[in-house]
Amino acid sequence: MAPPATDTLPQLLAAHSGPDRHYHGLQHIAECLQWLEQLRSLVARPAELALALCFHDAVYDPRAKDNELRSAEWAQAVLQAAGATPDAVQRVYALIMATCHFQPAQAQLPEDGAWMLDIDLSILGASPARFAQYQAQIQAEYAWVPAADYALRRQAVLRSFLQRPAIYQTATMQAWLEAQARHNLQQSLAAV
């Protein structure tokens, strides 16, 4: 595979650095990549997962419903132009699409898909201080939504995570983050 076009990294950094990126920006990507580094020995294809993590929020507009698709298509175009194998391109595309967190329960995850989801949701199990910062960052991204509407919608999202039998897909992340994530979510809901 040839290296990606020289303008890919600056474009990706610029996309994640937009002024409207309060949570879905470089800090989130850095945190995801730190988790990947910790989990590398457990992941089947760490390089592909790293690419998927870097691209998974490349397109992010809180008003849009197709962010994952547009991000996956961007990654697909970059990887195809770099000469990646069709299988590798499809795997990265599928990993990014797996981050549509509200898919039907029976949806089949791609290889490393459970790691992709768990790393993306690792923020839910962060320290209380980091979780509070995350909550404020998400609220800033949705500042255009009337406060009462935002509160109702956010409560519904947080409850949906709590209603899952497990927030995390992998036994490793369940052991490391599940209890803290549930505590954070319950505290957040109780504060409203």
Score class of each variant (00 low, 15 high):
Ala5Gln: 05
Thr6Asp: 06
Asp7Gly: 09
Asp7Glu: 10
Thr8Pro: 00
Thr8Asn: 03
Leu9Asp: 06
Ala14Ser: 12
Gly18Met: 02
Asp20Glu: 14
His22Leu: 01
Gly25Tyr: 01
Gly25Ala: 01
His28Trp: 00
Ile29Met: 14
Gln34Val: 09
Val43Gln: 07
Ala47Leu: 09
Leu53Gly: 07
Cys54Gln: 11
Phe55Trp: 04
His56Arg: 04
His56Ile: 09
His56Val: 09
Ala58Cys: 06
Val59His: 10
Arg63Met: 05
Ala64Phe: 06
Lys65Ala: 13
Leu69Asp: 12
Arg70Met: 08
Glu73Asn: 12
Ala77Ser: 13
Gln80Gly: 00
Ala81Glu: 12
Ala82Lys: 02
Ala98Gly: 11
Phe102Asp: 14
Phe102Glu: 10
Pro110Leu: 10
Asp112Phe: 05
Ala114Lys: 13
Trp115Val: 11
Asp120Leu: 11
Asp120Thr: 04
Ser122Asn: 15
Leu124Gln: 03
Leu124Gly: 05
Ala129Met: 07
Ala132Trp: 03
Tyr134Lys: 01
Gln135Glu: 13
Gln137Met: 08
Gln139Val: 00
Glu141Leu: 02
Ala143Glu: 07
Pro146Val: 09
Ala147Gln: 12
Arg153Asn: 11
Arg154Lys: 14
Val157Pro: 01
Leu158Val: 13
Arg159Ser: 12
Leu162Thr: 02
Ala166Gly: 10
Ala171Gln: 12
Ala171Met: 03
Met173Leu: 12
Ala179Gln: 13
Gln180Val: 12
Ala181Tyr: 07
Asn184Arg: 07
Leu185Tyr: 02
Leu185Ile: 00
Ala190Lys: 08
Val192Gln: 15
